[in-house]
Design a protein around this nucleic acid. Structure first.
Length: 360
DNA sequence: CTTCTGACA
DNA sequence: TGTCAGTA
């Protein structure tokens, strides 16, 4: 079906913008995101047909829902397989925004009454207000990433040369190494202390796991050489840069040494004591944790606090050894029972793993 | 005078 | 998303 008919009037960008109440810049952005594709004149000017205008109206309507341009693109191209899920996400985001706005309004009202009462406003009052908005923006972004990472993927035929280009060793910002190898018709990933996993192509430089909702995007430098990757998982994006061949093997050998010799992380026990104490208080120190671990710890905190309360005061703490995944394992005795705690840290000493479970 | 691209805020 | 530079 041709979207332009012979008697169609074609509008220039400025005319189209005036008629739809958006800017020319915005029209170009939509086009860059694949939402619009106006024809071009001989002078390379954009010309918008009635079909383009209709599509623009659809875009504007979908934007009312607060959808991102990429989500709108998926819907318009019919690639969106799970609109129901999308709407769920959208609902939670909008509800969160609504709650945030209500909190903001209450704060403003408080501040106004305070200033009416002649008490004067402190910098701290205003900072509270500002902080709140920012936190919500972050929450929105997190929800979107989680959504995008969890949505179903479509596998495509991978490009052989590309697989070779992506193969190599990479190191995350916290020092953790990962090895990517080509299997000929896909990629295989290896993270220290974890079972190997297969990666399937969904775009030339983007691969996904089938066993868990996570994806890898490979990035290239100006010369087109693969220079790094991004792991998308659990609402986070973790960047890794390509590193020298052999780094992975070296860290693997280190881990095997640690396991064989039962070598705990330096200062691990003190750190764990502190962490347990902080958990008991219900406020662990997140500063020395990776963002991913922080999210995990926050999530399980209520349960842990309850458990620690039940167990009573701590009696002793004993290092047991290093697990295959590189976790230092400790047995912690409490007045009313015992727990196993595992702790793992990155080369830069930030904590990247923490688990705890009751043991008989 | 207008649009285009690309960069930057 | 606005704006600016340098073009065509």
């Amino acid at each position: 079906m041709d979207k332009t008919s012979p008697q169609d009037v074609l509008l220039t960008a400025a005319e189209c913008a005036a008629r739809t109440g958006i800017s020319v810049r915005t029209l170009r952005v939509y086009e860059a995101n694949g939402l619009l594709s106006p024809v071009r004149s001989q002078k390379n000017w954009r010309l918008y047909s009635s079909g383009d205008i209709a599509r623009l109206n659809e875009i504007l309507s979908l934007k009312q829902l607060g959808l991102s341009l990429s989500a709108i693109a998926e819907i318009l191209e019919g690639r969106m397989t799970d609109v129901g899920h999308l709407l769920d996400i959208q609902k939670t985001i909008l509800t969160a925004r609504q709650e945030q706005a209500e909190r903001g309004l209450r704060l403003v009202a408080q501040l106004q009454s305070k200033s009416l009462a002649g008490e004067g406003l402190s910098m701290g009052d205003l900072l509270d207000l500002a902080k709140e908005t920012k936190m919500n923006e972050a929450a929105d972004e997190y929800a979107w990433k989680r959504y995008d990472q969890a949505r179903p993927r479509t596998e495509i035929e991978p490009d052989r040369d590309n697989l070779q280009a992506c193969a190599g060793e990479y190191r995350f910002e916290d020092g953790i190494a990962i090895r990517i190898t080509s299997t000929g018709n896909g990629l295989r990933g290896e993270l220290l202390g974890q079972p190997e996993f297969d990666l399937f192509a969904e775009a030339p430089d983007r691969f996904f796991l089938k066993v868990t909702p996570a994806q890898f995007t490979f990035s290239r430098d100006e010369e087109g050489e693969v220079e790094g990757l991004v792991l998308h998982q659990g609402g986070f994006e973790m960047k890794a840069e390509k590193c020298a061949e052999g780094v992975f093997a070296a860290t693997k050998a280190d881990l095997e040494d640690r396991i064989r010799n039962k070598t705990p992380f330096a200062g691990g026990e003190q750190k764990l004591r502190r962490l347990i104490g902080e958990h008991r208080e219900g406020k662990p120190d997140y500063v020395e944790m990776t963002p991913v671990l922080k999210a995990l710890v926050e999530e399980q905190l209520p349960v842990v606090v309850k458990e620690l309360e039940r167990l009573g005061p701590m009696r002793s703490i004993e290092f047991r050894g290093v697990g295959v995944d590189g976790f230092d394992i400790y047995i912690v005795e409490f007045e009313n029972g015992r727990m196993e705690w595992g702790m793992s840290q990155c080369p830069d000493e930030t904590l990247n793993g923490l688990f705890m479970r009751p043991v008989p």
